[in-house]
Amino acid sequence: MTENEQEIGKSFDIYDLHILRILLKDSRTPLQEISKEVGLSTTSCWNRIKKMTDSGAIQSYTVKVDLARIGYQDTVIVQVTLESHSEETLYEFGRALESIPEVLEALLISGDYDYFIRIAVKDTRDYERLLRERLYKIPGIRHSKSSFVLRTLKKVETPLD
């Protein structure tokens, strides 16, 4: 974290955090509702939201989608070890993952594996297809281990949820 990012983090008060919690629940909450719940004027709330957006603390407004309702019944966690750890290999692997729409999240990690990848699939046959047609065609994979998610116990985007 840069010095500037640390300063931005320190400038958030209880009102800013309250506004963020409201927006995390529903980013379409009207400004008047936010103001009423937080106990500030609409102008003050708008200025705070603008400041958080300008600083990059609020990155976007989006929707949450129930993946099962759009046909993606299963989530698979894949741990991957690469043959090489050169900058080029890591870069190319990351680019390849970006081209696979089913990859929801890819994290470069420490430990026994190099990557932790969260993938949405329709079923086990769909996952087998994705492995054959996409994942295993990425050069440089030494080893992978897959685990199907049985149930999600907790999922939040921030500790403020």
Rank of each mutant, 00 (worst) to 15 (best):
E3D: 12
N4K: 13
N4I: 10
N4H: 08
E5M: 13
Q6S: 12
E7W: 03
G9Y: 10
G9T: 04
G9D: 10
F12S: 07
D13W: 05
D13A: 05
I14H: 14
Y15H: 13
Y15P: 00
L17G: 02
H18N: 11
H18V: 00
H18W: 02
I19G: 09
R21E: 08
I22P: 03
L23S: 12
L24V: 10
L24G: 04
D26Y: 10
L31S: 03
Q32I: 11
E33A: 07
E33H: 09
I34F: 04
I34R: 05
S35E: 02
K36Q: 15
V38N: 05
L40D: 02
T42K: 14
T42P: 09
S44P: 00
C45F: 01
C45I: 15
N47E: 11
N47W: 07
I49T: 06
K50T: 05
K50G: 00
M52W: 04
T53E: 15
T53A: 15
S55T: 10
G56R: 08
G56H: 07
A57T: 14
I58F: 07
I58P: 07
Q59F: 03
Q59K: 14
S60E: 14
S60D: 13
Y61S: 09
T62N: 11
L67P: 00
R69P: 00
I70K: 04
G71I: 11
G71A: 12
Y72L: 07
Q73R: 14
D74M: 15
V76K: 04
Q79D: 01
V80G: 02
T81S: 15
L82Y: 01
H85N: 15
S86M: 01
E87D: 05
E87S: 08
E87L: 05
E88V: 09
E88M: 05
E88R: 14
L90T: 09
Y91I: 00
E92M: 09
F93I: 04
G94R: 14
G94T: 12
L97R: 00
E98S: 13
E98L: 12
E98K: 14
S99C: 05
P101D: 14
P101E: 12
V103K: 07
L104R: 11
L104K: 11
L104H: 03
A106D: 02
L107R: 12
L108W: 06
I109G: 02
S110M: 06
S110F: 11
S110A: 11
S110C: 04
G111Y: 02
D112W: 04
D112Y: 09
Y115C: 08
Y115H: 10
I119L: 01
A120T: 06
T124A: 06
R125Q: 09
D126I: 01
D126W: 01
L130G: 03
L130M: 07
L131S: 02
L131D: 00
R132E: 15
L135R: 03
Y136I: 00
K137W: 03
K137N: 10
I138K: 04
P139F: 07
G140W: 08
R142P: 01
R142F: 10
H143Q: 14
K145E: 05
L150F: 07
L150C: 03
L150V: 04
T152G: 06
L153P: 00
L153M: 08
K154E: 08
E157Q: 09
E157G: 13
T158G: 11
D161W: 01
D161N: 09
